[in-house]
């Protein structure tokens, strides 16, 4: 996974547990500044090691930590120097999800080894968005739930996200919006 994820994780751990715990995570996983370059693509095993070590310090299961991290990630991206790209992607949930693939496709033009997912809005009602997620990675379900929750936070929506189906290799998430 790309270094921006590692940077975001570092920032989350710094916010939550302070520099000494992050230093331990770095020590435990043999991580240094060279693993924290935003647009460098690193082997997924590095990312997994970082997340599991962080989860242990947070006292969470890896899945729970992934979800918390996904939610945090969106806030990190908007506050980081990638904020303008987030703005460019959209200012409401439907537009944002519809534009996500175009944004990812543009971003990875400069990152040949990156493997970006695809998000398609397959059904939309006032109170429910059905999002189909396709990826050649597995095991990131709770991360995606966290990301979608983070997007709701960012775009002034409240609601819940639920994994509803696994058609073939895709995964469908329902976003239930608190709109009355």
């Amino acid at each position: 996974m790309y270094g921006m994820a590692h940077r975001a994780l570092r920032q989350m751990m710094l916010d939550r547990l302070g520099p000494s715990v992050w230093a331990k995570v770095e020590r435990e996983t043999g991580t240094g500044p060279a693993d924290l370059i935003s647009l460098c693509v690193y082997d997924d095993s590095k990312t997994i090691a970082l997340i599991s070590a962080s989860a242990a310090h947070l006292g969470m299961e890896v899945d729970e930590a992934l979800r918390v991290f996904g939610r945090y990630w969106v806030r990190f991206a908007e506050l980081s120097s990638f904020g303008p790209i987030m703005d460019f992607t959209g200012q409401d949930l439907v537009t944002f999800i519809n534009n996500l693939d175009r944004m990812h496709r543009s971003v990875v033009l400069a990152m040949p080894d990156a493997r970006v997912p695809s998000f398609t809005l397959i059904d939309e009602t006032r109170e429910r968005l059905l999002v189909r997620y396709r990826s050649d990675r597995t095991g990131l379900e709770t991360f995606v739930i966290g990301l979608l929750e983070g997007l709701m936070d960012r775009l002034n929506e409240t609601g819940t996200v639920e994994l509803v189906d696994r058609p073939g290799t895709a995964i469908d998430f329902a976003i239930h919006l608190d709109r009355s």
Partner: peptide, 13 residues
């Protein structure tokens, strides 16, 4: 779109 995004990334980097 890719032009604006890539320049945005360059600025971020």
């Amino acid at each position: 779109v890719p032009a604006l995004t890539l320049i945005g990334m360059q600025r971020a980097l």
